[in-house]
Amino acid sequence: MKVAGALLVAIVVAALLLPPLLPWGYAAIDWNAVRAPAFSPGHLLGTDSVGRDLLARTLAGTRVTLAVATAAALVALVIGTAWGATAGWFGGRIDEAMMRVVDALYALPFMFVVIVLMVVFGRSVLLVFLGIGAVEWLTMARVVRGQVLALRNRPFILASEAAGAPARAILTGHILPNIASVAIAYLMLTVPQVVMVESFLSFLGLGVQEPLTSLGILVHDGADDMDIAPLTLIVPGFVLVATVVCLNRLGEGLRARMAR
């Protein structure tokens, strides 16, 4: 978990702080260095098929991928918590109906729903993360509902109910603080999933669009050019896999710690 955390922090810090220090921007074209090999002057990792710096592009792509993933995971957190807390709080028929909806949605081919959304509403970054967030909230809803259900009959909740506190006050004052740690652990586990979905969509040309770049687009471009410049595939692919592995490790570690 420590190694994973350190590597993740390194990736995030590099993606956020390093780009301004590089001699070339992620969209700038160096006509004198098309498909330059690694360690060329000015291009530490070489350039792609039109002479753009691979390191700068990978960092920019990582930034976009992580930004989309964080935003989408937050959307999932909000929807999932609201849905799960409502179901768990009211219980009974409402709970059953709401969870039946979640079960039904679980059985759906998510990726295809997102793709249909992309096809229908055009491809924009905003929509990418809204769409992904809208389908990734299910696990969160289940987890939160379970937590709320367990808290529902604890003495301190019953006491504040008996004291006449309104439901809204109990939910925000007692329930939310108690489920926050578990919700955050699952938030950490949602981020890598969203990273995968975003990269998948971008790889197919249905997600983030040029001139913006993301790890999925870079892997796609790299795959097209790998026989001549293999690094253009290997570098973004490695960053993507490393990011997802680290996030998964951290999330699982957090979950194990929070589960008590």
Binding site: F200, G222, M226, G237, V241, N248, R249
Partner: peptide, 18 residues
């Protein structure tokens, strides 16, 4: 298996081809 789970087919596919 932790790495395998994180290896999406669009990375493994091109790498295996390469």
């Amino acid at each position: 298996s932790a790495v395998a789970v994180a290896l999406p087919s669009f990375v493994t596919g091109p790498l295996l081809v390469l």
